[in-house]
């Protein structure tokens, strides 16, 4: 087609030979990699997003942790076998922070995509919606794991080093925690009607979840100051995700944290899928009745 009206067109091929079987595994595989590849490409090409995702935890590490080092004494608790600096203690918490913010960023982009319409292209492709959401989730998790490894590399140069095996063991832990926090983001995005409401999510979800966790202080420290805070932190799924990461970094498996994080992921994901189901969830309430 040219810009001129009446331009001659050549339409030759028939239009009935679609993919022979949309139901096969190859279709699922290609679609999932299509979604993950797109997210990763977007992330690495959006330099500002890449840098800002790293600046936040680095400020906490270089400024906040350095300032609190003297104020906060830490006893020897597993998985640590010696006295550690506060920077060392909060490093797993900051890994979790990256994933928490990334999960919320993904949920924000889902709301944005839904408002702008690009989400529709995903939703009208011939695959089950649960699979599309799961693929989106994997894509977001892949991005967050990448961010965490870059952060850990910078921390290594800063002097925060874990046993080399820890960098391998932490991968499955990061994947599970990323999935859990991403699923929470998905769930929230199914409830958020407009982009403007996202600030509320920051205030009511991200900050309480982060501060009422073991990211910045160990549980026993919280217990000393408030039993209520101690209990809230204990049952905060974010705490469990951080403990899973913390133990993995030192080559140890925290079974309780693993099961808690896994169950939280399944619960959040189930409700997110219901939330995005046009027949049942919030999409119906948004769309009409």
């Amino acid at each position: 087609m040219t810009n001129q009206p009446g331009a001659h067109l050549h339409l030759t091929e028939g239009r009935r030979a679609g993919p022979s079987c949309v139901n096969n595994m190859l279709h699922y595989w290609r679609a999932m990699w299509g979604i993950i590849g797109r997210e990763l490409w977007r992330f690495v090409t959006q330099r500002e997003r890449f840098i800002s995702a790293l600046v936040r935890p680095l400020v906490w590490l270089f400024v906040f942790a350095a300032g609190f080092r003297a104020a906060l004494g830490l006893a020897i608790t597993p998985p640590y076998e010696t006295y550690i600096l506060y920077e060392v203690y909060i490093t797993p918490g900051l890994c979790g922070m990256i994933q928490l913010f990334n999960g919320m960023q993904s949920s924000l982009s889902m709301v944005y995509d839904r408002e702008m319409g690009s989400m529709r292209i995903l939703m009208v492709c011939p695959l089950p919606r649960w699979f599309l959401l799961l693929s989106k989730l994997f894509a977001g998790t892949a991005v967050s794991v990448l961010q965490v490894y870059v952060f850990l590399a910078i921390a290594w140069f800063y002097g925060i080093k874990v046993p080399w095996q820890g960098y391998l063991w932490v991968l499955p832990a990061l994947m599970l925690s990323g999935l859990m926090l991403g699923a929470l983001g998905l769930l929230l995005s199914s409830f958020i009607k407009q982009l403007e409401n996202f600030a509320g999510v920051m205030n009511f979800v991200i900050f309480p979840m982060f501060f009422m966790s073991t990211a910045l202080y160990p549980l026993w420290k919280l217990k000393e100051s408030s039993m209520l805070l101690y209990n809230l932190a204990k049952y905060d799924p974010f705490s469990q995700a951080i403990e899973l990461i913390r133990f993995s970094l030192y080559g140890q498996f925290n079974q309780h944290a693993f099961i808690y994080t896994l169950v939280a992921f399944i619960v959040f994901m189930t409700f997110a899928i219901i939330g995005y189901n046009p027949s049942k969830g919030m999409m119906m309430k948004k769309g009409g009745s």
Partner: peptide, 13 residues
């Protein structure tokens, strides 16, 4: 890239 994304969603090689 936009078109490849669509073909991936439709399972095309």
């Amino acid at each position: 890239q936009n078109l490849r994304y669509h073909t991936a969603l439709h399972g095309m090689g």
